[in-house]
Simulated scan of single mutants.
Amino acid sequence: MKRLLTFALLSTSCILFADESRMRNIENRLTCLEDCGQNCCCLINPPARPYTPDCWGLYVNVDPLIWQAHVNGLGLVIQTNGSTDFFNTAGQSRVQNLNYDWDWGFRLGLGLNTTHDAWDILLQWTSWCTDAKRDFTAGPNQANFPHFGHPRELNEISANSVTSKWELRYNILDLEGAREFWVSKCVSLRPFGGLRSAWIDQKEFNIDLKDLSIPLYENYSIQQSDRFWGIGIRSGLDMQWGIAGGFSLFNNFAGNLLYSYHSVKHKEKGDDENLFDVENFYHLGSAIFDMQLGIRYDWISCDCCYHVGLDLGWEHHWHPGQNQFLLFVDDVLASKYVANQGDLGIQGYFLKVRFDF
């Protein structure tokens, strides 16, 4: 009984001592913060940028971009090999897709380094245009069976010649607030949140089929476009690992949830005759995910008022369900279609130049 009582007293003393130690630690931190004055915030996750209230606090960044886009679900035709019949055992058929180009774009940013807890505010605009083309002709014992086109008009019909073009205009406007701080002597984090507005205009996706196996028309044309706009919430995390001599590695990630709309237009023509013209306008929720990875160099002046940063890296932007073109699938129920046939992915390289003053 005495042993049990002694153990209980010791346990209670340990618990009280641990609680007293934690309270003393908190009181010491609070006392230190009170003694430090306005810059007390720097002791808790100290800012990873110079804390210079006497400077302008502005910064600009300019990013040349070289990107390439890919959209799945935009197969043009299935090309047979060894036979002009779709159902055959002579050779392996293959889906013919667009050839996507690499194109230049830019990203411009204007930011403010505030003196309130070392927060920063950034307004950034990204603009990029690209296209994709593919023209080909069937060879001997080959035939091109179209993927797009209404089955009532093109059922079991192949084309000898195919011409196609896809064009994209991409504009993004971001407004975000953030705080970059050290979590160790070489690692910093920059959590941020804000707003994003996106204009993604697939101006044209046209396919021209010529020399049809059943000569209903000399030229059969499918013309499509998709105008997208959205606005919503943006949140993410920038991470940096210092190496030495001003060099570091970085990895940035952001997610965006937008309230958006698609305005999809679909037209098919036989020669110059307009066979039908359909428009689909609707609202929905959309997501965009962004990721960057690369190497960075930073230089800061002696008075900490001026900073030059250079980033070189690779980035990827994923737009789930961005392919909303109409695909008609029934030659009996003429109005039956499917959409949401694929994602838009944009990847490439960038060089970021930042100047703080």
Rank of each mutant, 00 (worst) to 15 (best):
Lys165Arg: 15
Leu76Thr: 05
Asn280Gln: 13
Ala90Cys: 10
Asn99Leu: 09
Glu218Cys: 08
Leu168Arg: 01
Gln240Lys: 14
Gly149Ser: 06
His262Val: 03
Asn256Ala: 08
Ala48Glu: 08
Leu58Ile: 14
Glu279Gln: 15
Arg107Trp: 04
Arg94Gln: 14
Val332Tyr: 12
Cys305Met: 06
Lys269Tyr: 09
Ser13Asp: 14
Cys42Lys: 13
Trp102Leu: 07
Arg107Val: 06
Thr89Gly: 13
Ile15Tyr: 15
Trp119Leu: 14
Tyr337Pro: 01
Arg196Ile: 04
Gly321Trp: 02
Gln322Trp: 08
Ser221Trp: 04
Asn274Met: 14
His266Asp: 09
Ile295Pro: 01
Met291Trp: 12
Arg107Gly: 01
Gln92Phe: 09
Ser21Arg: 12
Gln38Glu: 15
Glu153Ile: 11
Ser21Phe: 11
Ile26Cys: 08
Gly149Leu: 02
Ile288Lys: 03
Asp201Leu: 09
His266Val: 03
Asp131His: 15
Val183Met: 05
Ala69Lys: 03
Val62Arg: 01
Leu154Thr: 04
Val183Asn: 04
Ser127Ile: 09
Asp120Ile: 03
Arg179Cys: 01
Gln341Gly: 07
Ser158Ala: 08
Trp199Phe: 09
Thr114Leu: 09
Lys165Ala: 11
Phe86Asn: 08
Asp238Lys: 15
Gly194His: 04
Asn28Cys: 10
Ile295Leu: 12
Asp311Gly: 00
Tyr51Glu: 13
His70Lys: 13
Pro46Asn: 05
Leu112Trp: 14
Leu293Tyr: 02
Leu257Glu: 08
Val62Phe: 11
Pro46Thr: 06
Asp120Cys: 09
Ser286Lys: 05
Trp318Asn: 10
Phe7Ile: 15
Trp119Asn: 09
Asn340Trp: 04
Asp272Phe: 12
His307Trp: 08
Pro151Trp: 07
Trp125Cys: 07
Leu10Gln: 13
Gly230Asn: 03
Ala339Arg: 05
Gln322Tyr: 11
Thr52Leu: 08
Val95Gln: 13
Asp35Leu: 13
Glu167Asp: 13
Cys14Tyr: 15
Lys185Asn: 13
Trp241Lys: 03
Tyr170Asp: 05
Ile121Phe: 13
Leu5His: 14
Ile214Tyr: 11
Asn323Arg: 02
Gly82Gln: 03
Leu327Trp: 11
Ala48Pro: 07
Asp120Glu: 13
Gly232Pro: 01
Gly345Trp: 00
His319Asp: 02
Asn39Cys: 10
Leu257Ala: 10
Gly313Val: 04
Ser11Lys: 15
Val162Trp: 00
Asn61Pro: 02
Asn160Ile: 00
Leu122His: 06
Arg234Asp: 02
